[in-house]
């Protein structure tokens, strides 16, 4: 289980998170914070960057410790490391970016249980070197941030008629308020998933069913074996 996965170039690892294995739209992880914090562009970007920071740090530390951490307690160890970094980020945001802290509310501490971070620790960082894990964390974090930003832009411009808090002409008079509420989040989410599926259709070769259809197949290393 600890053996390195098939050879992958650093650039590939970095770019993979943005479209091909986008954590939100392809792996469908971290859905809850994506819905909740994408009501405006500024909170979306803030949330994305905070999660990226945690993801980068936790991936690097877990990768460093991957030979030391015994298999039986790996999940508690990952959670302690992740919770530690989240708390650090939370304290820094609270001290230096008060507005962002207020608008993110409970979703900032909830990064601890964000599936993307634990998922990458378990799927990638625990099996790969520090450098590749850092790239993976950065790529996945940027993918998360990008998705949130796109969702936030659509929802804020069409839903509230503003962009990053500034009112836009035309849109501020004719807006669709439901887009800034939870149902609108699902509409935008569904449309983006469909778009990404269309964009990657036929380019990413995989089987239709079973283990080969899993979005995690490239990093799992257990393709075709019983889990």
């Amino acid at each position: 289980m600890k053996k390195e996965c098939q050879k992958q170039s650093g650039l590939d690892i970095l770019l993979r998170g943005i479209i091909k294995e986008n954590p939100v739209l392809v792996l469908v992880l971290g859905t809850c914070p994506s819905m909740a914090t994408s009501t405006s562009v500024s909170t979306a970007v803030g949330m994305g960057l905070a999660a990226t920071m945690v993801l980068l740090c936790s991936n690097m530390l877990i990768s460093l410790l991957r030979k030391v951490i015994p298999d039986t307690v790996r999940i508690p160890c990952y959670i302690v490391v992740i919770a530690g970094f989240v708390t650090v980020v939370q304290m820094l945001v609270q001290a230096y970016f008060k507005d962002l802290y207020d608008s993110l509310g409970v979703f900032l501490p909830l990064i601890v249980v964000n599936c993307i971070i634990l998922g990458r620790a378990e799927m990638f960082a625990s099996k790969n070197g520090v450098f590749h894990s850092a790239l993976d964390g950065l790529g996945m974090g940027l993918g998360f941030t990008l998705t949130l930003t796109v969702m936030g832009t659509i929802r804020e411009v069409l839903g509230s008629g503003s962009f990053a808090g500034h009112d836009l002409p035309f849109f501020s008079e004719y807006n669709i308020p439901i887009l800034s509420q939870s149902p609108g989040g699902f509409f935008v989410f569904g449309c983006l998933i469909a778009l990404v599926a269309k964009l990657t259709h036929g380019r990413v070769k995989h089987e239709d069913t079973g283990c080969g259809a899993c979005p995690h197949r490239t990093v799992c290393g257990k393709l075709g074996k019983e889990a």
Binding site: L65, V68, I69, P70, V73, C77, V80, V81, A83, G84
Partner: peptide, 15 residues
């Protein structure tokens, strides 16, 4: 496992 988890927890608490 006990030792590793304890050490990690202490290190994180210190940070």
């Amino acid at each position: 496992p006990v030792v590793v988890l304890t050490v990690i927890a202490f290190a994180i608490a210190a940070i």
